[in-house]
């Protein structure tokens, strides 16, 4: 009774109305975000339709030849390129960054840790074109000397990509390790474990979900990276025969040709974008499944 009488009062109604407006306001903003993502995706898909109509989705996907001047669009070598560079960069970066994170969180003296943080942040902040320069002047000649060829290759691009994703994986793994409750360490040491046993059996398993998230985010960055890879990979659209062969990735395909593409070629680049979208989604789903 009292409540009903109170709810009829003016002040209460005003309050309710205000709450209502705030809630709807936030809801609208959230919807705008979702709509943006959907619109982007829809736009890319619509623009890509002529190319898929021209080649057929399947042929576009598994076609081995990319010759825009003859209107032949096969993207398979670039899918291989994107996956290969990402995989190799992860193979290089994950062990390095996880052990770095373990060292910093579990072993390093506090002072060293303080020095290290800004270094990692700087590493994350360097523009990719600078990484490209670095690879161009340092890594490419080394690869050329060791493996022969031009030096612009899968390996060159992957090494530089690995450097670029290091900071992401390091700092996120560090967070994961930091969030392992200290009582687990105490319990383990209290049972007479060595530090390594504690890390191996207690800390790493407990932090694993966080570390996997770190790796997935690093992977996302590696797949999407365009400029540095474009500067280093050689950009030839063929299935590579060795790690020293040049390669073209999906992202660099778009960036390289967007400037002058017209007609069906233009649309084929959007189709590349659609495939890139799908590759990223498949990789994310696979790695999320792997983590379970």
């Amino acid at each position: 009774m009292n409540l009903r009488r109170y709810s009829k009062k003016k002040g209460f109604l005003k309050l309710i109305r205000k709450e209502y407006l705030i809630e709807k306001g936030f809801f609208t903003l959230a919807m705008v975000m979702i709509a943006t993502v959907l619109l982007m995706f829809a736009f890319v898909v619509i623009e890509s339709l002529p190319a898929f109509g021209h080649s057929g989705f399947f042929n576009f996907l598994v076609g081995l030849r990319w010759s825009p001047d003859m209107n032949i669009f096969g993207i398979f070598p670039m899918i291989v390129g994107s996956i290969l560079t990402t995989a190799i960069s992860l193979i290089i970066a994950v062990p390095m960054s996880v052990s770095c994170a373990i060292y910093l969180e579990e072993m390093a003296p506090a002072k060293l840790k303080d020095y290290f943080k800004p270094v990692i942040q700087t590493l994350a902040g360097i523009p990719s074109v600078i990484y490209g320069f670095f690879g161009l002047t340092l890594i490419a000649p080394i690869i050329r000397n060791i493996f022969g060829g031009s030096g612009f290759s899968i390996l060159t691009a992957s090494v530089v990509l690995a450097l670029m994703i290091l900071p992401t994986i390091i700092s996120l793994s560090q967070d994961a390790i930091k969030s392992v409750p200290n009582q687990f360490r105490e319990a383990s040491f209290g049972l007479g474990s060595t530090q390594w046993q504690c890390i191996k059996y207690i800390i790493l398993p407990t932090a694993l979900p966080g570390i996997i998230t770190a790796v997935i985010l690093g992977m996302g960055r590696a797949v999407g990276e365009t400029l540095a890879v474009l500067m280093l990979a050689g950009n030839v659209s063929v299935i590579p025969s060795s790690l020293a062969s040049p390669i073209r990735t999906l992202t660099s395909n778009i960036a390289l040709e967007m400037g002058y593409a017209t007609g069906i070629h233009y649309s084929a680049l959007f189709a590349t974008g659609v495939i890139l979208f799908m590759v990223i989604m498949v990789l994310m789903i696979v790695s999320t499944l792997c983590s379970k």
Partner: peptide
């Protein structure tokens, strides 16, 4: 620490 075991204030079983 193997010879001198410890039980902590807050029960801390491993996950």
């Amino acid at each position: 620490r193997k010879r001198i075991g410890m039980v902590f204030q807050k029960a801390n079983p491993f996950p």
